[in-house]
Amino acid sequence: MYVMQEDLARAQLREQLTQAEQSRRRRLALQVEKAQRRAERAERRADRAAAKARLAVARAM
């Protein structure tokens, strides 16, 4: 009887570890996606700022 309880406990722990790992991977993937979106927004802002600066230089001439 003891062996069955130990096997069940091991199986439950293994399942918990699997779920924790999947959760960690999902969280990491979300962090990567957020970082990519932030980088894309920053790139667009930099492009707009550069275009605005070029326009200001062109108008000053």
Rank of each mutant, 00 (worst) to 15 (best):
E21P: 00
E43S: 11
R41T: 01
A51V: 13
R54L: 06
R48A: 11
V32C: 11
E33Y: 10
E33I: 07
A46T: 05
L30I: 09
Q22V: 01
E15G: 15
A20K: 11
A9F: 01
Y2H: 09
E43R: 13
D7H: 06
Q31T: 00
K34E: 14
E43H: 12
A29R: 08
L55G: 02
E40D: 07
L28G: 04
A50S: 12
R38F: 05
A53D: 10
M61F: 01
Q31E: 10
E15K: 15
R44N: 05
E6A: 13
K52N: 03
Q31F: 01
A50R: 15
R45Q: 07
L28I: 01
A49L: 09
R38P: 02
A56G: 02
Q36D: 04
A50Q: 12
R54M: 01
M1A: 10
A11K: 07
A46W: 06
E40Q: 10
Q12N: 09
A35L: 07
Q16C: 08
R41M: 03
E6G: 05
V32W: 07
D7G: 03
R38K: 10
Q12V: 11
A42N: 04
R37S: 05
L17C: 03
R14M: 14
R59W: 02
E15Y: 08
Q19A: 14
A11E: 06
R45T: 00
Q31N: 02
L55W: 03
A9P: 00
D7P: 00
A42P: 00
Q16A: 15
A11F: 03
Q16P: 02
R25P: 00
A11V: 07
T18Y: 12
L55Y: 01
A51W: 08
A39R: 13
D7I: 12
R24G: 15
R26G: 04
E15T: 14
A53L: 12
E6W: 03
A49M: 06
V32G: 02
Q36F: 01
L30D: 14
E15P: 09
T18S: 14
A9L: 08
V32L: 14
A42K: 09
A51I: 06
E15V: 10
R14H: 14
R25N: 06
S23T: 13
A60D: 04
R10K: 07
L28K: 01
A35S: 08
V57I: 03
E6Q: 11
Q16D: 13
A35H: 02
A42W: 03
K52S: 06
L8V: 06
R25M: 08
R37F: 11
R38Q: 14
R14C: 09
A42V: 02
Q22W: 10
A20L: 12
R48I: 01
R38D: 08
E6C: 07
R54H: 04
Q19S: 14
A53Q: 12
R24E: 14
E21N: 09
E33T: 09
E6S: 10
L28Q: 09
E21H: 04
A58M: 03
Y2E: 15
R14V: 12
R27A: 13
A20S: 14
R48G: 00
Y2V: 14
R44E: 12
R54G: 00
R24D: 13
Q19V: 07
R44D: 04
S23Q: 15
M4C: 04
R38G: 04
D47T: 07
R44C: 04
L55I: 02
